[in-house]
């Protein structure tokens, strides 16, 4: 087994996680991330388990919330911690279009 990730593999996961890396860091993570991945690979050796997934260890039936409003913020509180804002809006560098999500 190769004991290092390729530079591209490191950059791929760094992009997924949105972390900019220096060349030095890339070299370091090629080794370190591989060590971690070798460890989690061992899950492939586990056999004979039940297919039921445990999403949370506590399995009360989910209690639903009544459709009544409460606890809203004043727009001033919304922008209080925002590093950049314009009026009541929170501001970011220009983005074209809407997201994929909805």
């Amino acid at each position: 087994m190769e004991d290092k990730l390729t530079k591209e593999e490191v950059l791929h996961v760094a992009t997924l996680a949105r972390v900019k890396l220096t060349d030095e860091e890339i070299e370091k993570y090629r080794v370190e991330l591989k060590q971690l991945l070798n460890e989690v690979e061992k899950i492939n050796d586990v056999e004979g388990y039940d297919k039921e997934r445990m999403i949370a260890p506590w399995s009360d039936n989910t209690t639903l919330r009544e459709d009544k409003s409460s606890d809203m913020l004043d727009p001033k509180e919304v922008i209080k911690n925002a590093p950049k804002h314009s009026g009541n809006y929170i501001e970011v560098p220009v983005v074209i279009g809407e997201s994929e999500g909805a």
Binding site: V13, L16, L33
Partner: peptide, 13 residues
Amino acid sequence: VKRRIMVGSYLLS
């Protein structure tokens, strides 16, 4: 933190 979120991203990708 960086190490863990990078590996975590990989594990879900």
